[in-house]
Amino acid sequence: MSENRTTDEGRRQFLGGTLALGGIAVAPGVFLVNVAGAKPADQPVTDKVRWGLLVDTTRCADGCDACVRACQEENGWGGPDSNEVKSSDEQKAQWIRKVHLRNKQTGSTHSLPLMCQHCEHPPCADVCPTGASFRRADGIVLVDKHTCIGCRYCMMACPYKARSFIHEELHGQKVNAPRGKGTVESCTFCVHRVDNDREPACVEACAAEGRRALIFGDMKDPDSEISQRLKRLGVRQLRADLGLNPGVHYEGV
C-alpha cells in the first residue's frame, strides 16, 4: 500500500514536472510534446541530445500504415494525390515504408516500418561529394537540398534503401518540407517538429491508433522512455554488423 502510494506520488510528480515544462500528457506516459529537447528557437542544436526511435514490432500491426500516411500528409509526398505525376511507382519518393518479414523456417511474420535509420556514421554523408548529406549535432541525418547536385551516390551508399530522388518539377510542397526536382530526400525525423518540441508525425499517428509501437526521444537522457526501453532484451538495430550505429532500433525482430 505504502509502496503503491510512493509510486503514484512519484508518477504524479513526474507528470507534474513535465507539465510545468510545457509537456502535454494525453494519458499517463503518452506525451504529445517531448520536453527533453526544449530548445529556444535562436539556439543551435547540440550533441547533448541524440534523437532516436524505437519500433516495437510486437505492437506494430500487419496491414496498418498509419505511420506512412501521417508522414505523407506531414511532408507532402506520395499518397493518392502525389505531386509526382510523371514518375513511375518505382521512381516515386518513399520516406517510410512498411516491410513484412517472414521467417521461412518457422513461418513467423513481422511487420515493421522502415525509414532513414539516422546512422551515427552515415555512409550517405561519407560519399556525398558536396557535403549536402550531413548529420546534425543531435544525430538527425538530412540532405541540404541547396547544395545537393542530384548525383545519387548517397542512394547507392545507404544500406537501408531509405532515400528517394525527385525526377520532376513539383508543386504544392509543404512549408515545413521543401522538396524539389533534382535532389535526394529521406526521412528527416520531422526535424521541423523536433525543433519545436514535438514528436515526429509517424510517432503521433501510431499513438493515435492506440498502438504506441513507435517511441521517440533523446537516447542520451538516461531517464527518457526510449533510453529505458533500449535496455530491454530483444532490442536491436537492423544490420548492426555494419557498425553504422543507427538511431532507429527495433524490438521483437
Partner: peptide, 17 residues
C-alpha cells in the same frame, strides 16, 4: 520556389514566436 512553398501556410510554430 522549385522546392519552397510560394504561398502562405501554417508552420505549426507557437503563436508567440
Amino acid at each position: 520556389f522549385g522546392c519552397h512553398s510560394d504561398v502562405p501556410q501554417e508552420t505549426g510554430v507557437a503563436k508567440e514566436d
